[in-house]
Simulated assay, not measured.
Amino acid sequence: MILDADTDLQLERTLQVPADVIWRCWTTPEHLKHFFVPRPHKLVSCDIDLHPGGRFNTVFEVEGNEMRNDGVFLELIPGRKLVFTDTYTEGWKPAEHPFMTAILLLEPLNPHATRYVAIARHRNAEARAEHEKMGFHSGWGMVADQLEAYAQTL
């Protein structure tokens, strides 16, 4: 995948978990709650309708405040690729303040390890810079660590 340095951020890790387990974690609300936001923040609600155009709605609790993020799935290749965005909500309704499109790529390296690539695509360089300043690498890195630790218990 070709990245645009002006608008894209990327995190790449090798997780000691099979790709199908990572996929299940990312696509099942009961699993997502265990890793989706960096601790001490938490995911308090998640509603998934897993198909292109289906909803991916989440509510986070950050420092006592709830933050709602509604979006849709754009592309799904089971066990390999998951693409979602907050640019639209269910029914392809444009969002008032879109932030990014996320692309997760999973490449099995062996039966117990997966190359995990998380890409955040932004509408412009300013949004990318804002996300980087918010702590994209540390935050998404913590999410990857939390995902790996949780997935290893399944």
Rank of each mutant, 00 (worst) to 15 (best):
14 T>Y: 03
6 D>H: 14
43 L>V: 09
123 R>S: 11
154 L>D: 05
4 D>P: 09
11 L>S: 05
135 G>Q: 06
132 E>N: 13
13 R>I: 06
152 Q>N: 07
57 N>E: 02
92 W>Y: 07
39 R>K: 14
119 I>Y: 00
14 T>V: 15
134 M>E: 09
50 L>P: 09
81 K>D: 02
7 T>V: 13
107 E>Q: 10
5 A>K: 15
96 E>D: 12
7 T>K: 12
149 A>D: 05
30 E>N: 13
41 H>E: 07
64 G>L: 08
68 R>I: 11
105 L>T: 14
100 M>W: 03
137 H>G: 09
70 D>S: 02
120 A>P: 02
89 T>K: 08
140 W>V: 04
72 V>I: 15
143 V>S: 02
151 A>W: 02
98 P>Y: 01
120 A>E: 09
95 A>I: 04
79 G>R: 02
133 K>M: 11
10 Q>Y: 01
48 I>K: 08
104 L>A: 03
119 I>L: 01
11 L>M: 03
5 A>R: 13
21 V>L: 04
33 K>D: 05
5 A>C: 09
66 E>I: 09
120 A>Q: 12
37 V>Y: 10
80 R>K: 14
116 Y>V: 01
30 E>R: 14
20 D>E: 11
49 D>Q: 13
60 F>I: 06
144 A>Q: 02
82 L>N: 00
128 R>T: 10
101 T>S: 02
22 I>A: 06
64 G>R: 09
2 I>Q: 14
112 H>M: 08
42 K>V: 10
18 P>H: 04
113 A>C: 07
76 L>T: 10
90 E>K: 13
130 E>M: 15
22 I>N: 03
142 M>K: 13
93 K>P: 00
73 F>N: 00
127 A>M: 15
3 L>V: 11
17 V>D: 00
71 G>L: 00
134 M>A: 11
112 H>E: 12
93 K>I: 13
45 S>K: 15
17 V>F: 05
142 M>H: 13
24 R>D: 13
119 I>S: 00
50 L>R: 04
128 R>H: 08
26 W>E: 01
116 Y>N: 00
109 L>M: 11
4 D>H: 12
71 G>E: 00
148 E>Y: 07
135 G>P: 11
29 P>I: 04
147 L>C: 06
125 A>F: 08
